[in-house]
Amino acid sequence: MIKMTPAVLLIGAPLVFWAATVIVVIIPIATMDVGPSKIWRPWTPEERAGHKLYVENGCSYCHSRYIRVNDWGLGAERIAEPGDYSQEVPAILGTERTGPDLSQEGGEHTDGWHTAHFTNPRYTRPLSLMPAWAFLGRRNIERLTAYVQAQGGTMADERVARQQLWNIQAAAAHRRGGEDGSIEWLHANIPAVWRPMPNPYPATPPALGRGQKIYQDFCLGCHGPMGDGTGPAAQYLDPPPLNFTTLRRHLVEGRYIGGIFYYQIMNGVTGTAMPYFKRELASEKIWDVSNYVALRFLGYTDADTEPFGIDAAYEPVWANPYKPPVVPGKPGPEETPGKERQWE
């Protein structure tokens, strides 16, 4: 029988501990230097300062910085590799995803979106649980933004460059022609196949109810409760968020096109703060919120109008009761209050 003597305890216990430590600490230190990965690049001083803020303010308690094999369902374009973290001190990977993974966040949004989001995350993401970082001050928020925009290495750089390329055009269009200029520029950049596409699904009260919920959870922060682009985030964004009501002056095919709403929500408007929502919202939800925006702020939706092909199996018998706007360049016809109450 082994007896526990002071010698066994005081010498043996540390020895066993060190034997295991050599295996799981010393050998990794000696062998795990893999060098930079293909997408790795060094950080600028600004990004380094942002990393310091990220570390000191405990961002890693809610954000991970590696995409896993089983994250493919979230649309991951790249699984993390060891060399992505080359020379980082400390390379905090994170253990929790109360917020999203940030390892490929760079270029997903414009700098303006991040400024609004860091100031108060609910400005751009009404349901967010993230703390407001306004107290860090404008300068530190710039540093954090630079850091986040660098997440993803050279892959992020490509996305950031795309954002900047389109931002120049989008901002210039707004400076040239204000809200009308923005809408003209947007309409000019819609793929032709989407332009004549009406919303194929009926604007029934349940569908509009879903649309309203989606609008509140996703759109409110920028486009505002009146749809006039004056949400709390708007002050940080260039170009500013779209004012839906001005669409009355910019009819396409004599109406507001459901397909254009759908395309912009699904795909986002790169170069502006409008993100793509194709990962967040299923197809039905995007059509629903399109119907909601069109009806709520413009009084007309082209839902279920020609060409509508074969109705989907679930659709109730529904005929579009809304009159298309008639006079281009002037406000559309007054809607009757009764119609609006149908779904409110």
């Binding site: 540390p14 501990f17 060190w18 430590t21 799981v24 600490v25 990794p28 230190i29 795990m32 230097d33 893999v34 060891p82 060399g83 992505d84 973290y85 080359s86 020379q87 980082e88 001190v89 400390p90 390379a91 990977l93």
Partner: peptide, 25 residues
């Protein structure tokens, strides 16, 4: 020993090793 190694005590002020190897530690 655990605290000294885990905090990479020999490398102030960050208390971490560069790169991914810091994570296993």
């Amino acid at each position: 020993f655990l605290y000294a190694i885990g905090n990479v005590i020999w490398s102030p002020p960050a208390g971490a090793l560069p790169g991914i190897v810091d994570s296993p530690i």
